[in-house]
């Protein structure tokens, strides 16, 4: 594999490892996690409640799988995303119950709409700003778009809006999604530093907001770009003690379902660990709350930054086997589309 291929694979694997490692810790507070597991640095065995739902060690959840399935129609057609391919990827993902059972609230509504199932009448029907849909489900899948557009943030941002507005048709969720994909794209630049990843995230958030304003629903919530900057500042302040950074990020930025929490948090972990892939994933996992999503997004970015060589040996085989993926083949297929150019 050449460097670019290795970086694409690193990103896919980083996302998948983060998701699968964070699946076990999701919804739990960092204090409970610490009591129960200490500081987690591997994919641990799922607890009973997850096992009952069919979860096994190494299985990814909705986060990485929706990105993976979204890429398939693009790979088959050897082209970049468009509305039809985005729709096809989403519906194909939805037909795999292993993953679609854990779909978030915003994604469920969108899929039902695509299938022609009208939502039950709600008091929100007349409401202009549905702020409860400012979720991180755009960010969890948008990293994949950065891989199709290495070191081309502007095209990445436009294509992210195409992919994600299908499910997350509001300005802030799209701003957050563009922050993640822009940083993934930037990770392919020559001499890219981890500072550049953070700046790319801020650029993506600002541009994603600007380009989607007026085209999708307006909403109210925190400013993604400003919160990325704050989270990164906390991370930079505690580089000598990344776990301290993790605690402060959890206390002040938050790492929950909402786009203005988990996306900024991911950049905070990148800053705290200087972009190191496994270390950044560990922080995202041990911080608690929406850990699978935050770790997945973090892994997408730092995996591309560091390349697959820096990911713990053995994890690629585990992820591929448990999920029935072939991430190496996927990486090469994406690289072929990049190489072809358009």
């Amino acid at each position: 594999m050449n460097l670019r291929q290795n970086k694409i694979l690193g990103s896919l694997l980083g996302g998948a490892v983060g998701d699968s490692m964070g699946a076990v810790t999701e919804h739990t507070s960092r204090r409970i996690l610490e009591e129960r597991y200490g500081f987690i640095t591997e994919i641990i065995e799922p607890h009973e409640r997850l096992r009952k739902h069919g979860h096994v060690r190494g299985l990814v959840t909705d986060d990485f799988s929706v990105a993976y399935y979204s890429a398939q129609p693009m790979i088959e057609n050897k082209c970049h995303v468009n509305f039809e391919l985005a729709k096809e990827g989403l519906l194909r993902w939805n037909s795999d119950p292993r993953y679609s059972n854990c779909a978030g609230p915003t994604t469920i509504v969108a899929i039902n709409k695509l299938k022609g199932i009208a939502p039950p009448p709600s008091k929100l029907d007349k409401v202009l700003c549905i702020n409860s849909r400012v979720t991180n489900g755009g960010g969890m899948k948008s990293g994949i778009i950065g891989l199709f557009n290495p070191n081309d943030m502007d095209r990445t941002i436009d294509e992210t809006i195409t992919l994600c507005s299908l499910t997350h048709d509001n300005t802030l969720a799209l701003s957050a999604a563009c922050a993640i994909s822009a940083a993934v794209s930037k990770a392919f630049a020559d001499n890219c530093s981890y500072y550049d990843l953070i700046e790319a995230g801020i650029y993506g958030a600002d541009e994603g907001y600007r380009r989607s304003l007026g085209k999708v629903r307006p909403v109210a919530g925190c400013n993604i770009a400003k919160k990325i900057a704050l989270a990164a500042q906390i991370g930079l302040d505690h580089q000598d003690d990344p776990r301290k950074a993790m605690e402060e990020i959890a206390d002040i930025i938050g790492c929950g379902l909402y786009a203005y929490e988990s996306i900024p948090a991911a950049f905070g972990y990148i800053a705290a660990t200087k972009g190191q892939v496994m270390d950044s994933i560990y922080l995202a996992v041990n911080a608690g709350d929406d850990t699978d999503t935050v770790a997945c997004m973090t892994g997408f970015i730092t995996g591309a930054f560091c390349s697959a060589d820096m990911i713990t040996p053995g994890l690629l085989e585990l992820i591929d086997e448990v999920n029935g993926f072939d991430l190496r083949k996927t990486a090469l297929a994406i690289d072929e589309i990049v190489e072809k150019g358009e």
Binding site: S29, I253, G254, D289
Partner: peptide, 14 residues
């Protein structure tokens, strides 16, 4: 009940 959430005291200070 246990929950995960940002810290109210830190956020008031900030």
């Amino acid at each position: 009940d246990p929950v995960c959430a940002p810290d109210v005291v830190s956020k008031i200070r900030w």
